[in-house]
Design a protein around this nucleic acid. Structure first.
Length: 152
DNA sequence: GCCAACGTTGGC
DNA sequence: GCCAACGTTGGC
């Protein structure tokens, strides 16, 4: 099983929004970065687990866990002119962007903040903590996954 | 193919 | 709201 960390701005779509969705499931769409796209399309597998990370907010950090329930398929928001993620270069015949479906699994008892993660030298290799990293989806090793969870 | 300009991300 | 860091665009 693979592990991941996926960022979302809670003001737009937070963990509570996911939990309140029908079947607690939602397509993770709108990703417009090629590196992240490749992970969505090529590497994520059904049953993989992912941290839900709240970004660009008062208390950035990991707030919960979700599961990948559908593997990469074309992100149709790219060919919707009304979507904020519209990309005219992506078409149904030649989709450029992909999404997966995620399902809510649990909320951590507390937010494990970015500030706290930075204090742990054993997590220094987390892409999240690398200088200038702006990827909205990134891999987490099984060891990192375990070390983060015991912080809770 | 270089690289300056521009837009975006996201912590602070 | 600031701004560092990075990705993308497009002229040449």
């Amino acid at each position: 099983m693979n592990y991941w960390l996926m960022k979302s701005e809670p003001d737009i779509f937070g963990i509570d929004d996911l939990r309140e969705r029908p079947r607690q499931t939602e397509p993770w769409d709108g990703v417009r970065n090629y590196q992240a796209r490749n992970m969505l399309r090529d590497q994520m597998r059904r049953g993989d687990h992912a941290f839900f990370y709240h970004s660009n907010c008062k208390e950035p950090g990991i707030v919960g866990i979700m599961e990948i329930v559908r593997e990469g398929y074309p992100d149709d928001s790219a060919w919707d002119p009304k979507s904020p993620h519209f990309d005219p270069k992506s078409t149904p015949l030649q989709p450029r962007w992909y999404k997966v479906d995620v399902r809510y699994q649990l909320k951590l008892r507390r937010c494990i903040t970015l500030q706290e993660l930075k204090r742990h030298p054993e997590l220094a290799a987390l892409p999240l903590l690398k200088r200038g990293n702006r990827l909205s989806i990134m891999p987490v090793t099984p060891d990192q996954w375990r070390r983060i969870l015991i912080l809770e």
